[in-house]
């Protein structure tokens, strides 16, 4: 395949970025999107040019490192997958592909397609845990949990923290991300004891680091590679009201 890439290049957080154009001649439809970027970078390095910086690691959709807007969609035009899983078979011969970093104030651009997502960690540090010391846990089967509840908790717990929800949201809201953790623990008996402190601490931190509020447009759910549901946000709101 022959493709034209328009990639956002930005030297550092303070620099003004711009789109650069790259022509790719030999793209196989069997390649993954990041492998296509690898091929571009190989070419750039061989020409002693600065390669495109992007975050990536596991390349199997679970670590949450990768993430970029591709043709205006977080993780590209295919739903329910991460950028690393996006196959080039979804693009057309001759297509022009626009590639940009996450655009959200709490995720400042570090370089090119790399953004700073430590704001997410800060929220988790504020309260995303159950306070139990190593060695203090009761026998696992002494905590009985309905299968349905446990399965629902799992469905919330599979968030990979990639930031697509924030990137998709016009308010740069992190409500889907926060609500996934709140829901996981709200559904499990282990999480009940600290429920109030947790939701307060996480929401306060979420506001403090600059994420916007939710106005229920649902873009986050539509773009989430792990299909975390909007109902989690409803549960977060319920938990939040209960906490005051």
């Amino acid at each position: 395949m022959k493709l034209t890439l328009k990639i956002w290049r930005q030297k550092n957080a303070d620099a003004k970025g711009n789109f650069e154009t790259y022509k790719m001649d030999n793209v196989s439809p069997k390649m993954a999107f990041l492998e296509m970027l690898d091929a571009l970078n190989k070419k750039l390095v061989e020409e002693d040019k600065d390669p495109v910086a992007f975050d990536h690691d596991c390349r199997e959709g679970i670590c949450g490192s990768c993430g970029m807007y591709i043709n205006g969609h977080p993780h590209g035009p295919v739903s329910a997958i991460t950028t690393c899983h996006l196959s080039m078979r979804y693009f057309k011969e001759g297509e022009t592909i626009w590639v940009e970093p996450w655009r959200a104030k709490p995720f400042p651009v570090i370089k090119d397609l790399i953004v700073d997502r430590t704001a997410f960690d800060k929220i988790q540090i504020a309260g995303g845990f159950i306070s139990v010391n190593t060695g203090a846990a009761p026998e696992a089967n002494s905590i009985l949990i309905q299968k349905k509840k446990s399965d629902d908790a799992f469905d919330s717990a599979i968030c990979i923290g990639c930031g697509a929800c924030v990137a998709a949201c016009k308010n740069a809201s992190a409500m889907l991300f926060v609500s996934a953790k709140i829901s996981q623990f709200a559904l499990l008996p282990q999480g009940h004891i600290e429920a109030k402190e947790r939701v307060r601490a996480m929401v306060i931190k979420m506001d403090e680091v600059g994420f916007g509020n939710c106005s229920n447009t649902g873009a986050c759910e539509a773009e989430c590679p792990k299909q975390i549901k909007l109902t989690n946000i409803a549960r977060l709101n319920r938990e939040y009201y209960k906490a005051y």
């Binding site: 060695g135 846990a137 905590i143 309905q146 446990s150 282990q190």
Partner: peptide
């Protein structure tokens, strides 16, 4: 065994049977 107890206490949603056991 302690590892499983600990993760369960931390809220790791391991698969469960209908009676609520792991």
């Amino acid at each position: 065994n302690q590892v499983i107890d600990h993760y369960t206490a931390l809220g790791v949603p391991f698969a469960r049977d209908y009676g609520g056991t792991l």
